[in-house]
Amino acid sequence: MSKLFLSLHVLAAIIAIGPVTVAASAFPKAVTNDGNPELLHRICRVYALVGISVPVFGFATAGVMGVTSHPWVIVSIALTTAAAFVLALKVIPGQEKALRTKDVKHLAMYTGVFNLLWATVTVLMILRPGSTTGA
């Protein structure tokens, strides 16, 4: 069962978080260069909702593997929560404001913080400090 949950967790991360990071990163330039920021904003909103499946499958995987109390899992949960808040409270609303005003002030910074948080979680998932699996 752990292999199934882990596979679903990784697939959800690739399918959901990848598009959000790319679309959110491209958004400020699309606003200032008359690109298609509306499409990028829609991608961010939709895939942010799909992205909820990433921690759901992550919790399921950690539970089945019995690692929910491991420090790297707890840190990953905290960073994932922080990333979700940055996306929900800063990036998405910042994009909505930019669509109205063409002002992308601070939006690239918040997007960068969101991307950095997810990159850190990804590294933790691979390195798993203190893991006994040898990976």
Results as ranks from 00 to 15, higher is better:
14 I>E: 06
134 G>P: 06
59 F>T: 07
37 P>R: 00
107 L>S: 09
26 A>M: 14
10 V>E: 10
70 H>L: 11
22 V>P: 05
85 F>M: 14
135 A>E: 10
63 G>N: 01
62 A>V: 03
57 F>G: 00
133 T>R: 11
39 L>Y: 13
92 I>N: 04
100 R>S: 14
117 L>R: 02
58 G>D: 05
82 A>W: 01
57 F>M: 10
74 I>F: 01
42 R>G: 07
50 V>M: 07
5 F>T: 13
76 S>C: 11
101 T>S: 11
102 K>T: 14
70 H>A: 15
75 V>S: 02
47 Y>C: 05
62 A>N: 06
24 A>E: 09
11 L>Y: 12
27 F>D: 05
41 H>R: 10
75 V>C: 04
16 A>C: 14
74 I>L: 12
101 T>W: 10
132 T>Y: 01
40 L>C: 05
24 A>F: 04
86 V>N: 01
108 A>Y: 04
35 G>Y: 01
43 I>P: 00
43 I>K: 04
17 I>C: 03
43 I>W: 04
101 T>Q: 05
51 G>T: 02
134 G>H: 10
71 P>Y: 12
129 P>G: 11
121 V>C: 03
129 P>N: 07
108 A>F: 04
125 M>S: 04
11 L>E: 10
40 L>A: 06
92 I>K: 01
52 I>H: 11
5 F>E: 03
91 V>L: 09
34 D>Q: 14
13 A>Y: 11
42 R>A: 15
112 G>P: 00
6 L>S: 08
99 L>Q: 06
107 L>H: 03
132 T>D: 06
19 P>H: 07
49 L>R: 14
55 P>W: 02
59 F>E: 08
65 M>E: 11
126 I>D: 02
100 R>E: 14
83 A>R: 00
29 K>E: 14
49 L>Q: 14
9 H>C: 09
24 A>K: 09
104 V>R: 02
84 A>M: 07
1 M>I: 13
62 A>D: 07
58 G>R: 02
98 A>G: 10
71 P>I: 12
63 G>F: 01
96 E>V: 04
12 A>N: 08
36 N>Q: 12
110 Y>R: 01
37 P>K: 00
93 P>Y: 08
10 V>H: 13
79 L>E: 02
42 R>H: 10
132 T>W: 03
94 G>W: 03
26 A>Y: 12
20 V>Q: 00
94 G>I: 08
29 K>Q: 13
24 A>R: 08
78 A>L: 15
89 L>F: 15
130 G>D: 09
81 T>H: 02
38 E>A: 13
20 V>G: 01
54 V>S: 00
90 K>A: 09
129 P>E: 12
8 L>I: 09
71 P>D: 15
88 A>G: 14
22 V>S: 07
119 A>Q: 11
106 H>V: 08
8 L>M: 12
120 T>W: 07
32 T>M: 10
110 Y>A: 06
66 G>C: 04
79 L>N: 00
40 L>I: 06
